[in-house]
């Protein structure tokens, strides 16, 4: 049961990373086509700046957060890590997961309220003379932070239950990037 839930979460976060990867490709194509079309045909792709900054950037930067969190890739300063051994290590890790959980829950809640406000205002920006709606992009943030809090909660649970070294947990934390490449 628990193992199935962990596997499901692992796959879910992997999908988030792939969506982020698609965002990277989309951004690359959009900007490249814009430059080529502007130079060759004097016709830039409309609203490139707005779509890149308001959609692709938000998607790439936040959506895969849960994936990063699952793989323990959030950057930490490990200057004193030698001090944390045995039970102290467990207490410290529980504290770290708890704070991460708190931060992500705060962020999920606050960015959700911001997204609702933008939705109600029907936020858009003008790109030359085209109106580009921007409110949908705001909803990516609460989604990303909610999923990241879910992962933090799981990590906190595994830590408190003393299970983070078990094979199913190790599998959950895997950092494989899609097979060996030499």
């Amino acid at each position: 049961m628990r193992s199935a839930a962990l596997t499901l979460l692992r796959h879910l976060t992997n999908v988030l990373a792939l969506v982020g990867a698609l965002g990277v490709i989309a951004m690359l194509l959009h900007v490249t086509v814009d430059v080529i079309s502007r130079q060759l045909f004097q016709r830039p792709v409309p609203a490139t700046v707005e779509i890149v900054s308001r959609y692709y950037m938000v998607l790439i930067s936040f959506l895969p957060l849960a994936w990063t969190e699952r793989r323990n890739e959030m950057i930490t300063v490990d200057i004193l890590s030698g001090l944390f051994r045995g039970p102290l290590d467990r207490i410290n890790m529980a504290f770290v997961h708890l704070l991460s959980l708190a931060a992500f829950i705060f962020l999920a809640y606050t960015t959700w309220s911001a997204a609702l406000r933008e939705y109600e205002a029907g936020s858009f920006v003008m790109s030359l003379s085209v109106a580009v709606p921007i409110w949908p992009g705001y909803f990516l943030l609460p989604l990303a932070f909610a999923l990241a809090s879910l992962i933090s909660a799981v990590k906190l649970y595994l830590c408190l239950a003393g299970r983070e070294r078990e094979p199913e947990s190790e599998a959950f934390f895997e950092t494989d990037n899609g097979g060996p490449v030499q």
Binding site: F62, W67, T68, N177
Partner: peptide
């Protein structure tokens, strides 16, 4: 795929 995922991972942990 590996290059893409490394790009995504680095971007996310830097931008946060």
């Amino acid at each position: 795929r590996k290059a893409l995922l490394e790009t995504v991972g680095t971007t996310v942990s830097l931008f946060i």
